[in-house]
Write a protein that binds this DNA or RNA. Structure first.
Length: 488
RNA sequence: GGCGCUAUGGUGCAACGGUUAGCACGCGGCCCUUUCAAGGCCGAAAUACGGGUUCGAUUCCCGUUAGCGCUACCA
């Protein structure tokens, strides 16, 4: 038996924006793989683009990962603090002839294609020869350029013949004609490395064994394979995962609404539900199973189950997963999330963590079958946690329509006030007896009462609601609602 | 433009040469019912197109089309 060393994987975001769902899914796959294989997850911040880099966003990305439950074992490392390494690598390549100094002007790119399509004046995409002219420059010419102090970058001398191969755990063995690969830049004229260089140097230095990343990097992987070769290192296993697209099949962006992980946290999604949903975007167990808790996700995860087709982010399904978790978690598991939600909306009372702990757990349990998002606890279920709530206009219109309602509510108040032992059955008995005596259907009174005590048409079954609220509250709210009903 | 990847209902996934093409979300209907959910049952809905290979193609090969990606001194 050969002893296979534990895999080392990494998630390497660049701080040019928040943590979006695509990055989150990549991070999740890396984490699942590391946990499944008993390996190590490294977090690396790729902040080598001084133009687009926004250091203040790093904390947000870290927070997003923490919320997601993706825990890294090493890092975060910052590429901006490892610049010497990249320079040394570039010099090594320069010395070996695998790279050369380039004095060309940077080619215009940003938005060039789009600008041309829009018929923009003067927009022109400049074509660069696959082989940079500087590559053939004589030593004398170079000296001349150096003496003039011309800015220069380090460019990789891509192989011109033959093929470059690498294996992808998802897409299979790949083979690319070297003639297709251009002389790409390794070190900018500013001395900062490009992605190609810094990623490879770091992955070698950090002994990364599996690179699990978005399929947008698939086309550039041959370049990196060449770099590994030139640097005298063995390439790791590559595993490119399909991209996540918006409903219009284009790459997810701000236009598609919420795309940041933090926005889902704020909207009231449970991290575990989000993980379950995200894991199934581009991966499956190979069976029909879908409801997979995190421990199952970890034990079932495998690179061979990763799909090769881009997936569209379906919010409706995410919401379904959330409602499932809201219902299937144990109350104990759910409580901390509800507590955080109520705290966030200013409805939290410390007593619910002390003397009224049981009441709180019971109420959450009562409410949860009707919740889809955590925020439901502080929006439609507000009346269970606060005396300050309003009467929903639609609900009043629908259930306080009958002119007998105000009188009935008044009589019900008296009947309930007379109830000695406040429980489900005594409340039900009092209400049904009144309905029968008044010759109205119980449903009429039930629905009107629900609106009166919680302000809306949607709530758990009435008598359970009454017990949860307690006698004093119910009586007080009925007295408050009766005139409002009369005004209806 | 060049190079590459992909292609099963509206969406996410199954079926990895032989199934009445399965599951889930969403959608429609019914049941349950005290509102609204949840739950149960039923239903509509797919192998992009054209050629091969094969006794037999969703599955293998080629082409077309479409989508996406890369083609930057972005990552």
């Amino acid at each position: 038996m050969t002893c296979v060393s534990k895999p080392r994987v990494r998630f390497a975001p660049s701080p040019t924006g928040y943590l979006h769902v695509g990055g989150a899914r990549t991070a999740l796959f890396n984490w699942l793989y590391a946990r499944r294989e008993g390996g190590t997850l490294i977090l690396r911040i790729e902040d080598t683009d001084v133009e687009r880099n926004r250091p203040e966003l790093v904390d947000g990305i870290l927070d997003g990962l923490r919320w997601l439950g993706v825990e890294w074992d090493e890092g975060p490392y910052f590429q901006s603090r490892r610049l010497e390494m990249y320079r040394a690598a570039a010099e090594k390549l320069l010395a070996s002839g695998a790279a050369f100094p380039c004095y060309c002007k940077p080619v215009q790119y940003a938005g060039a294609d789009a600008a041309i399509e829009e018929g923009e004046e003067g927009a022109e995409k400049k074509e660069r020869a696959a082989v940079c002219p500087c590559r053939e420059m004589s030593a004398a010419e170079r000296e001349e350029k150096q003496r003039q102090g011309a800015p220069w970058a380090v460019r990789f001398a891509a192989l011109r013949t033959g093929v470059t191969r690498f294996d992808d755990a998802v897409f299979g063995p790949r083979e690319v004609q070297n003639a297709e690969i251009e002389d790409f830049v390794l070190l900018r004229s500013t001395g900062l490395p490009t992605y190609q260089l810094s990623a490879v140097v770091d992955d070698i230095d950090m002994r990364v064994t599996h690179i699990i990343r978005g399929a947008d990097h698939l086309s550039n992987t041959p370049k990196q394979a060449m770099l590994y070769e030139a640097l005298g290192a063995t390439p790791p296993v590559f595993a490119h995962v399909p991209l996540i697209l918006g409903a219009d099949r284009t790459r997810l962006s701000k236009r598609h609404g919420a795309t940041s992980v933090s926005s889902y946290a704020e909207e009231g999604f449970l991290p575990e539900a989000f993980r379950n949903f995200l894991a199934l975007l581009g991966w499956s167990t190979g069976t029909d199973e879908e409801f997979l808790r995190t421990t199952e996700l970890i034990s079932r995860f495998s690179l061979s189950g990763v799909s090769r087709t881009n997936a569209i982010f379906d919010r409706a399904k995410l919401e379904w997963f959330n409602s499932q978790y809201l219902q299937r978690l144990t109350v104990e598991e759910l409580l901390p999330y509800v507590k955080a939600e109520l705290k966030h909306s200013g409805l939290w009372h410390e007593a619910w963590d002390a003397g009224e702990k049981e009441w709180f757990a019971h109420t959450v349990d009562l409410l949860r079958p009707r919740t889809r998002l955590l925020t439901d606890f502080s929006t439609w279920a507000r009346a269970f946690f606060s005396d300050e709530f309003d009467y929903d206009a639609e609900a009043r219109k629908k259930f306080w329509k009958d002119e007998k309602i105000p009188a009935l509510l008044g009589k019900l108040t008296d009947a309930l006030d007379a109830v000695a032992e406040w429980n489900h059955d005594s409340c039900e008995h009092a209400l049904r007896a009144l309905a029968e005596k008044e010759g109205v259907k119980a449903g009429l009174l039930i629905n009107a009462t629900r609106v009166a005590i919680v302000g809306r048409a949607v709530a758990p079954p009435l008598f359970e609601t009454m017990v949860a609220l307690g006698k004093a509250r119910v009586i007080e709210r009925l007295r408050r609602a009766t005139p409002a009903a009369a005004a209806q």
